[in-house]
Nucleic acid binder design. Sequence first.
DNA 1: TAGGCCATCTGGTCCT
DNA 2: AGGACCAGATGGCCTA
Length: 317
Amino acid sequence: MSEMVSVHGWMEEALSSQDEMNESNQRESAYDMLSGMSHEEHGSIDGEDDEEEEEDGEKPKKRGPKKKKMTKARMERFRVRRVKANARERSRMHGLNDALDNLRRVMPCYSKTQKLSKIETLRLARNYIWALSEVLDRGQTTEGKGFLEMLCKGLSQPTSNLVAGCLQLGPQTMFFEKHEEKSHLCESSLPGHTYSYQSPGLPSPPYGNIEAHHLHLKPPTFKSVVDSSMVNHTLNCTTPPYEGALTPPLSISGNFSLKQDGSSDMDKSYAFRSHYQSLGLGGSHGHGPHFQTAVPRYEIPIDMPYETYPHHAIFSE
DNA sequence: TAGGCCATCTGGTCCT
DNA sequence: AGGACCAGATGGCCTA
């Protein structure tokens, strides 16, 4: 990073000196930019035209708009503009990454040491919304493989294992159809459990397995709002909870709100269910308020290839 | 060493 | 003119 920042003086260096060629790569970009200029522009630079004046009496040899000569002053302005644009772009991307980080923190699993990639974060987020919508609309349980399969739809194998591990479903619910090829099964290592889940989707990036103590389980993330001590006691989560502003994880029709009084139903047997209920979202079995989403429902066959998802139809309408 | 992921630079396009 | 946004290019880092 610092090296890249130091490159911000690329043009200055490119224009003033040509030593320190160990940074030739970044430096090249400056020269590339110069090389991208018109011949006229290069010509004026080589000519050491110090004047702001853009007309020196030469007759244009071609038709069309005449290109301004690249005087030193123009070069300087160009450089300043480019440096500022780079800084803005960096800042913009940092903001984007911050937002992505916030998204990671409200995902069903969160690990500071085993961050989901950008693309996996977005996929999981989409699946998460989808799965929660199913819970609300159809009373589908958050327990069991159905919910997990929705979450893991199209995710890479390691990410699927990460999610499966985070859900802490018992092995009896985690071993899916026996006909699934063992060769495609991958294991995540949580103490006391070995989870295996075959993701139906994409190739597996080299994430590797994860340690349970590296995980920040999603349910504690929200429990921590109410009772963090219980979280540490019951789930032994060592990763500090998300301290930023909590965004209601689901607001499909805009009529959901986070409970303000901190009341909770922490005696529920399943963290996810209590998560919903503590948010006033109702449980998975029809308890609590019933919400009617304004989102049109689209069936997505569980075996539908990820690539063929009706992406625009699912959540964007 | 190849592949995945990422940060950054860059130029183009659109908008104000 | 300048900023926001975008996509392509590039190089670094990491892991299998």
